[in-house]
Design a protein around this nucleic acid. Structure first.
Length: 456
RNA sequence: GAGGUUGUAGCUCAGUCGGUUAGAGCGCUAGAUUGUGGUUCUAGAGGUCGCGGGUUCGAGACCCGUCUCCCUCCCCA
């Protein structure tokens, strides 16, 4: 017998953590619903044909693959073994764990397009799995909270994502944050301008790191990725663009020759204008040309949310994509989505000490258990407390009061009802406040009233 | 997938040059206190030193392998 252990990169969430996590999930879910998003859940595992090839070569490797059940190796020949693990994998594994929520969503849309009211707005809060190497704040199992709108090109979606974020984050207590926005069309235009066609992806990956590694390292990386020094020197405005006032004006003159870039700029300006009409004063939005995001499928606006004054950086990201369902044979459905990272939000809230004790919805009152007679008396009270909506429990064993109070204390139960022969005779029960130590004699109605109205 | 690092009681960690029976703090259990938690005092329980192999008269310590944790890449939430 060996000691039990957790699988690499996974975690348990105890009662205290769950209370906090549930608060985050509930807050996010409520906001999603208020914006008209409808819930969707998809299976934990999908056929590999659905998942493979959607996340690049690297992504395929990070997929958790499920071994076929039964005699998975029965039909294998010696040659199959010699071909290496990749061809072999396809012969022994046909299913894999969900890697993100977007691809299963795309599959769902493709399969149900005839029945969905378009534009279709869905939210999805489920765990995903990646066979990545775990590090701080990075796990092999984690939750994503996604909201997407598909089937419309309206920039209202982008604007609503901005207001949605301004809804969710303050509701969680996170008030100091920045929604960074850029547009892939602008980045395409830049690639075009500096004569680096086809290197757009590399440009994005490198430029995205600017705030992390600095200009010099980015230039270095661009050189490594095959950009000419001439191209790079033309990027100078990107490094110097002031985000302060009127960045669009400056950008527009620099990229005046690129039709696609101008389109991107115009889109962003419309989003800005619409956010204003939606009534968001002092929006915490910021244009950032260096925001690129690694994912290759984005084609329009891209978002990233940063919590300010904390170690953890990005807590949310998203953007607009064309042709979501194209690989499933349904072209022409575009959309825009946002994904919130619960684990990082949790860390941010912990660091800023934003969890309140009242968010932990534990037992409010415990009935003590002296002897058999008192226990029976207490049992008859229990449903009355619960019917009144009070979280309550009775101590199950007849043990020393010390032990029972100790239990209540450790479980952070605020009140204990003490029932003894005296109390049963008079009908006045002793209600003990565990925080103050104060005790008072009350009848059942008074206790119900007090516990219902007390705020803890 | 590449490089580095860590692992000793439930938790945080000491453990000298390889040498007798592996320690501390916190926590836990019991008692002081037979109807009153937190504080205090006293006593007690608790270890396959991550796992497997090797070197040695002797290994928690040294060597090899392996797993895990954390960190840097890559990439991402």
């Amino acid at each position: 017998m060996s000691k039990p252990s957790l699988a690499r990169g996974t975690r348990d969430f105890g009662p205290e953590q769950m209370a906090k996590r549930t608060f985050i999930f509930d807050t996010i879910r409520r906001s999603f619903q208020r914006y008209g998003f409808l819930p969707l859940e998809t299976p934990a595992f999908e056929n590999l044909s659905v998942l493979m090839g959607k996340y690049g070569d690297e992504g395929d490797q990070l997929l958790f693959k499920l071994l076929n059940s039964g005699d998975f190796s029965g039909k294998l020949s010696d040659e199959d073994w010699k071909e290496g693990y990749k061809p072999l994998t396809t012969k022994i594994s046909e299913k894999g764990l969900r890697y993100d929520l977007t691809v299963p969503f795309a599959r769902y849309v493709a399969m149900n397009r005839g029945t969905l009211a378009m534009p279709f707005k869905r939210y999805q809060i489920q765990p995903v799995w990646r066979a990545d190497r775990p590090q701080k704040g990075r796990y092999r199992e984690f939750y994503q909270c996604d909201a997407d709108v598909v089937g419309t090109d309206s920039l209202l979606c982008e604007a609503e994502i901005v207001t949605l974020l301004h809804d969710i984050l303050p509701a969680l207590g996170i008030t100091d944050f920045t929604v960074k926005i850029n547009n892939r069309k602008i980045l395409s235009g830049i690639a075009e301008m500096i004569g680096a066609h086809g290197l757009e992806g590399s440009l994005c990956v490198a430029i995205d790191k600017l705030d992390k590694i600095g200009k010099d390292k980015v230039v270095e990386e661009l050189l490594e990725r095959g950009f000419s020094s001439e191209s790079i020197s033309q990027l100078e405005p990107v490094f110097n663009l002031s985000i302060e006032n009127e960045p669009f004006t400056e950008l527009r003159s620099w990229l005046s020759d690129s039709e696609i870039a101008l389109k991107g700029i115009q889109e962003l300006e419309e989003v800005w204008a619409m956010v204003k009409v939606l009534g968001l004063e002092n929006a915490k939005i910021e244009f950032d040309v260096t925001l690129a995001r690694g994912l290759s499928y984005y084609t329009g606006a891209i978002f990233e949310v940063k919590a300010n004054n904390v170690q953890i950086g990005s807590i949310s990201g998203g953007g607009r994509y064309d042709n979501l369902t194209g690989t499933f044979g349904v072209p022409g459905i575009s959309g825009v989505g946002i994904s919130l990272g619960v684990d990082r939000i949790y860390d941010v809230m912990e660091e800023l000490d934003l969890f309140k004790e009242s968010q932990i919805n534990g037992t409010k009152v415990m009935i003590s258990n002296f002897d058999e007679e008192a226990f029976t008396f207490g049992l008859s009270m229990l449903p009355k407390l619960r019917n009144a909506g009070i979280n309550s429990e009775i101590y199950p064993d007849q043990v020393k009061l010390k032990k029972q109070l100790d239990y209540a204390d450790r479980k952070n139960i605020h009140f204990v009802i003490l029932i003894g022969s005296e109390e049963m005779q008079s009908g006045l029960l002793t209600l003990k406040n565990m925080k103050t130590g104060e005790q008072q004699k009350l009848n059942l109605e008074e206790i119900l009233f007090k516990l219902t109205n007390v705020d803890i």
